[in-house]
Simulated scan of single mutants.
Amino acid sequence: MNRTLWTRLAWVVALLPRNVCVVVLRAYRAVVSPLYGNVCRYHPSCSRYALEAIQQYGVVRGSAMGAWRIARCNPWAAGGIDDVRERARPFRLSRFGFVLPPSSSSPQPSGDARRPVLLPQRTRKA
């Protein structure tokens, strides 16, 4: 087999646990989270924080960071903005949030790859 195919397969296997957690957290955010409403004292919400932490740091450390955040989210907490610290990562994120292996042909994006780039809107001529 081709060496690049083995490399890509290794990346897929290595990132599989993260992507399984992404599916679970996205399902939670779609089904269970709306039932609670906006009750989190922090921004982003605890489930979004856990999702970003797992995407950036992996399942073990990201889950620990998410659990610590949930433990801090209580009625006596001051709350506020609490983002996951950015980490230089050698991978990309899909639109759904899956962690993808690095692309060897495209350069790494500069800045925050999670934030969408806002494009100017076209105006229609009357």
Score class of each variant (00 low, 15 high):
residue 10 A to G: 15
residue 10 A to W: 09
residue 11 W to G: 10
residue 11 W to M: 08
residue 11 W to L: 01
residue 12 V to T: 14
residue 12 V to L: 13
residue 15 L to C: 03
residue 15 L to N: 04
residue 16 L to Q: 08
residue 16 L to F: 14
residue 16 L to Y: 12
residue 17 P to Y: 02
residue 20 V to K: 03
residue 22 V to C: 02
residue 24 V to T: 11
residue 25 L to V: 10
residue 25 L to T: 07
residue 26 R to K: 15
residue 27 A to S: 09
residue 27 A to V: 15
residue 28 Y to Q: 09
residue 28 Y to C: 09
residue 28 Y to G: 06
residue 30 A to T: 11
residue 32 V to G: 04
residue 32 V to H: 09
residue 36 Y to C: 07
residue 36 Y to A: 14
residue 38 N to A: 15
residue 38 N to V: 12
residue 39 V to R: 15
residue 40 C to I: 12
residue 42 Y to D: 02
residue 45 S to T: 15
residue 46 C to L: 06
residue 47 S to F: 01
residue 50 A to N: 01
residue 50 A to I: 01
residue 51 L to A: 12
residue 51 L to F: 03
residue 52 E to A: 05
residue 53 A to W: 11
residue 53 A to Y: 11
residue 54 I to W: 13
residue 55 Q to Y: 12
residue 57 Y to H: 15
residue 57 Y to V: 02
residue 58 G to R: 08
residue 60 V to F: 14
residue 61 R to Q: 13
residue 62 G to M: 11
residue 62 G to Q: 09
residue 63 S to I: 01
residue 64 A to Y: 07
residue 65 M to H: 04
residue 65 M to G: 00
residue 67 A to L: 15
residue 70 I to P: 00
residue 71 A to Q: 10
residue 73 C to T: 12
residue 73 C to A: 12
residue 74 N to F: 09
residue 75 P to T: 14
residue 77 A to G: 06
residue 78 A to T: 12
residue 78 A to P: 01
residue 78 A to E: 10
residue 79 G to E: 10
residue 80 G to Q: 06
residue 82 D to Y: 08
residue 85 R to K: 13
residue 85 R to I: 00
residue 86 E to H: 12
residue 87 R to F: 09
residue 89 R to Q: 06
residue 90 P to F: 11
residue 90 P to M: 10
residue 93 L to T: 08
residue 94 S to P: 05
residue 94 S to Y: 02
residue 95 R to C: 08
residue 96 F to G: 01
residue 98 F to W: 07
residue 98 F to D: 00
residue 99 V to G: 02
residue 100 L to Q: 07
residue 100 L to A: 11
residue 103 S to V: 09
residue 104 S to T: 06
residue 105 S to G: 04
residue 106 S to Q: 09
residue 107 P to I: 10
residue 109 P to R: 08
residue 109 P to H: 03
residue 110 S to P: 01
residue 111 G to Y: 00
residue 116 P to H: 03
residue 116 P to T: 04
residue 117 V to D: 06
residue 118 L to P: 00
residue 119 L to E: 14
residue 120 P to A: 04
residue 121 Q to F: 02
residue 121 Q to H: 07
residue 122 R to K: 13
